[in-house]
Write a protein that binds this DNA or RNA. Structure first.
Lengths: 235, 235
DNA sequence: AACGCCTCTTGTTAAATATCAAGAATGATA
DNA sequence: TATCATTCTTGATATTTAACAAGAGGCGTT
């Protein structure tokens, strides 16, 4: 389940694509046709590796549907979860311009669909259109700002606060619901917020005992969002 | 010493500026003249605030000479040191496109010189020149990649490893010398690598006792770079 | 010089977190 | 179904780090 690769599927025209990023709104119809021809649509099942750290950067990848995790192997060989990518996120955006190879792996944690555009084509469009370049600058800045800011925020919380942070992230940012299926394992949560599995488990049970959340299998429901929010900010 | 503002000083033409970033190499001579007219050169003394978190983003700032620190006030009010900016770094680059206000403060930690260009002008040049946009995309990506990667690296080290990391950073990346003046206080080191002042002090003394470094006032000399490197990677 | 305000330093103690161990639950596979 | 591997869970213990306290040294101000 961990090294299957996504399978390509039929594409459609970008011109009338409802999922298309506002990023491309500035393109002319000619340019949109180029985009349509140059892109591929792929489906990735839960667990599929979409991009592998170390792969040559040759594509521009846009998550249409689903959920994916950004991971990397740190200098000392440990696996780290860097962030979660949501629909409409440009994943792999960070390495796109800074490095010839991807700095992170991107792995689907829910069944997902991605649009893939050759980097050369994007590159060409950027050189043609200052507006597109400008939008891209904004997107990239936002993504990295978010990653850095999350990291910094997590750093000055202790364990309870971090767990609250991550629960709040899934509830508010990802699923917009107080009840959701945790798409990641305890181990992965640990990697994401820098703590051991055992402590992830322990604190989740603690929250359950305190009736802040309920846990049924992989389903989590947040019973006391206010309390969770308080812990996130002060715990 | 903490809230003086930098004083402007005489500019010169960007066309023949030896400090000019390769970023602008692609500009036409007309565009370079625009740049010359639109830019300001400022000098910032040690301690001067160059940019304040929350200020409106209206300038593009390039560090010609000196050294500066990026800091921010976290959501819970604590001061955090996010990174160190070196000459040729574009500081404030991260907030430039992602937010109307600066997300970080930038404070000179050595006497510095910066070039300041109005954002509007850069904006205009980006829209005109795809090449400039492309270079900017690369720069931004590199800066954020570096910040994120440093953060992640620091996270899976313990205290000795973090101190080794920061000493190595100053020695190799900033000063290219085994002997240098620490430009930041123990407290600031603590903020940068997430530890208490007391532990910064303690571990520095420990390294001194183990003859890995020597400390004389603010001057630090790395006596056993290999050992320090080992601690950085395994400690 | 005398004062207050920092940063720096060391020792001691408390709290947070990781490690280790061992069993339960789960899920994939033959 | 039986088996193996993995994740999950809990308890006990060790280690790491933070917090507290108290003094030393430096620097600017009056």
């Amino acid at each position: 389940m961990d090294n299957k690769f996504p399978t390509p599927c039929l594409g459609e025209s970008c011109g009338e694509c409802g999922f298309r990023s506002t990023l491309f709104d500035c393109l002319s119809s000619d340019q949109l046709i180029m985009l349509s021809k140059g892109k591929d649509l792929i489906k990735a099942s839960k667990g599929d590796i979409i991009i592998k750290q170390g792969d040559k950067v040759k594509d521009f990848i846009f998550l249409r549907v689903g959920l994916a995790k950004l991971t990397r192997v740190s200098s000392d060989g440990k696996e780290q979860l860097v962030g979660i990518a949501r629909p409409k996120d440009f994943i792999g955006l960070l390495s796109l311009f800074s490095s010839p190879v991807h700095q992170y792996s991107i792995i689907a944690i829910e069944d997902s669909e991605c649009c893939i555009v050759e980097f050369e084509l994007i590159n060409k469009l950027v050189l043609e259109s200052g507006k597109l370049a400008f939008s891209l600058l904004q997107k990239i800045s936002q993504v990295s700002d978010m990653l850095i800011s999350n990291k910094l925020d997590i750093d000055n919380r202790q364990l309870r606060g971090r767990i609250a942070f991550i629960l709040s992230l899934f509830s508010k940012d990802v699923y917009q619901s107080t009840k959701f299926n945790l798409p990641v394992s305890r181990k992965e949560i640990g990697e994401l917020i820098d703590m051991r599995v055992e402590n992830v488990v322990r604190i989740l049970s603690e929250f359950r005992k305190d009736k802040i959340i309920s846990i049924e299998g992989t389903t989590i429901e947040i019973l006391q969002p206010d309390k969770l929010e308080w812990i996130k900010n002060h715990g």
